[in-house]
Each structure stands twice: as C-alpha cells, then as structure tokens.
C-alpha cells in the first residue's frame, strides 16, 4: 500500500495523532513510555475496548447504542450479588450470570429495534433508563466493598499472563484482561469476515432494503447484533468489578459517551456500513491516553469531559466533511 492510499484511511490519521501525542507525553514525563505504563494502560482500557466492540457492531449496522454501560452494570451488580447471596465463590458462575443478563437485555433492545422498528437512539436511551432504574429499585443501591467481594473475583483481577521483574525485585505484568480482549477481538473479526450473519451486519448497515432483497434476514441479524453487544457488556461488567474490586451500581453509567467517542473516532460512520475493528481499537487507545494523562499534561481532571467533547467533534467533523466534499467532487466530475 503506498502513502497516497494510506492517507485515505482514518486509521492512519489516528495512528499519527496517537504517535505525536505519545511522543509529547514522553517528553513531559519519560515514565509514559515504559513497559509497565503500557501494561497498565492495556489493563485499564480493556473494558472500554470490549464495550467499544459492541458499539462498533451497532454503528456498523446503522444504529447507535447508549445502553451498553447500563447493561454492563446490571450484569455486574446482579451476578456479584448472586454470588454473595448463594455463597458460591466461582468466577465462571459470575461470568455466566452476567453474560446471560447481558444477552437477555440485548435481546430486549433488539425486540424494540427490529420488530417495532423504533429509532435506535431513542430505544437505547429508554432501555438504559429502564434497566438502570429497575436495577437500583429492585436489586438495591448498596455498594459492595472489597471485604464482601467473593475471593475468586478479586483473584481474577490479579491474574497475569506475563510477569516481569523490576530492578528492585518487585514484579509487574500483563493482565489477563488483555488476553480476553484479544480473544473477543479475534472472535468478532472472524464473525464479521467469515460468517453469513457477520457479512449481513455490513449489508444492512450499507443499505437495509438492498440487504433484505438480497435475502438477508434483517431480524436475525439485528437480534444477533444486540445480543452480541449485550454479551460483550456482560463480560465487561465482571471484568470491571474484578479490576477495581468495588461494586457500585451507579458506576459505568454515564461513560457511554467515551465509548461512542472511541468508536466514532475510529472512523465508523453512524449511517452504517463503514468502519474497521482496527480503527475502533485505535480510537479506544487515543481516548484512554487522553483520559489518563490529562493530569500528566498539567490539566486538572475537570477538563476530561471537555476534551472528550472536543475530540468527538474533531473526529466526526473530519470524517463527515471529507465525505461531503468527496461527494461534491464526484458530482462535479459527473457534471463535466
């Protein structure tokens, strides 16, 4: 691929921005470019990345999902409470319950979107309020402290797939979260690339009517998309609590803006049909670096939301302005 072709891809620009940004951060504080810091970034951004995969799929199909964080917190909080109530200390059961909840809530989203043909934004705004309200009303609002948390969940967050030793003998390592993310990425990539339903996601995002006439079952595809996004949110929910070792049913909800920002930055268009997993992951990296290093740059954490807003605006402006001027150029060529 030559440079001219490369410059047409959103991914190239994001990669450049990430590199420039990292270089600047390293100059300010050399700690940034250590393996330890990289491992830490990977560990803390895995959760966002997993939610981003789900949101990416939804965007690819021409929708938008703001309920992913509500689903993740529902899966997390219910599964942890079940574990505590029953006394069964098993991380596998936690994941199973959380994933089941995620898939069911995703299916409810799909019922509204696929069968009743409601706009995706309004549906997921509604369901996110519904799920979260119901969780707080029925399950409760009590926070789960580290002391009450099942041992297996705490232990899971500490598993490392690669352990390195520092000069002073203490060790640091690459968290298992990264492995989970890689597995889920490969799975999603495989589904999108090699399965009928995966190709269908692109197809209904590109043109729903055309996809239907080609013989794609749009109900089946939409149920798959929202259930899969729910599944990812369920996985993320348990990962999140085992990372921070504290369960609060008010956490996560409200962070969907950063997730959507990451996906949109990655070049996925809300009109559907375009976007890549690579772009999405680059978007997540950029957003995470930005969020985690504002203080390093000498700005207080108050600036976080402001910067995410700026980044989204810049990202979408570039994507859509390119699109608009491209269309105009094509039109004028066609006219001549």
């Amino acid at each position: 691929m030559n440079i001219k072709q490369l410059m047409k891809h959103n991914e190239t620009y994001i990669l450049l921005i990430i590199l420039i940004f990292s270089a600047a951060l390293t100059m300010i504080n050399p700690v940034f470019l250590t393996l330890e810091n990289m491992f830490d970034l990977l560990r803390s951004s895995s959760g966002t990345a997993i939610l981003a995969i789900g949101v990416f799929l939804v965007l690819l199909s021409g929708g938008i999902d703001v309920s992913c964080t509500a689903i993740a917190i529902a899966g997390q909080y219910i599964s942890v409470n079940v574990l505590i109530a029953t006394g069964i200390d098993s991380i596998a059961l936690a994941f199973l319950i959380s994933i089941l909840i995620g898939v069911s809530l995703g299916a409810i989203n799909a019922v509204f979107i696929s069968i009743f043909k409601l706009p995706t934004l309004i549906t997921t705004l509604g369901t996110s309020s519904l799920y979260h309200g119901l969780l707080l009303e029925v399950v409760g609002t009590k926070a789960v402290n580290a002391g009450d948390l099942p041992e297996s969940i705490k232990a899971f967050g500490k598993i490392e797939i690669l352990t390195l030793t520092r000069a002073d003998g203490s060790s640091y390592g690459l968290s298992i979260f990264f492995l989970i993310l890689v597995i889920l990425l490969l799975l999603t990539w495989f589904i999108l690339k090699f399965t009928m339903v995966g190709r269908g996601v692109y197809a209904i995002g590109g043109n729903a009517e055309a996809a239907k006439r080609t013989g794609y079952n749009s109900h089946k595809i939409q149920f798959f998309i929202y259930c899969y996004a729910g599944f990812l949110a369920g996985v993320m929910g348990v990962m999140h609590i085992s990372m921070i070792r504290y369960g609060n049913p008010n956490y996560l909800v409200g962070t969907e803006l950063s997730v959507i920002a990451a996906v949109v930055l990655g070049g996925a268009r809300i009109s559907g049909g375009t976007g890549t997993l690579t772009g999405t992951m680059l978007g997540v990296i950029l957003i995470t670096i930005l969020e985690k290093n504002l203080i390093l740059m000498g700005l207080s954490s108050y600036w976080q939301q402001f910067f995410i807003g700026v980044v989204i605006i810049l990202g979408v402006s570039i994507t859509y302005a390119q699109n608009k001027f491209q269309a105009r150029r094509n039109l004028s060529i066609g006219g001549a």
């Binding site: 995410i308 807003g309 700026v310 989204i312």
Partner: peptide, 9 residues
C-alpha cells in the same frame, strides 16, 4: 453528542 460533552465540560 460531541457538543454535549464540550458544553458540559
């Protein structure tokens, strides 16, 4: 969505 973050921020 972007300006929401910007204005609230």
């Amino acid at each position: 969505l972007g300006t929401q973050g910007l204005f609230m921020g």
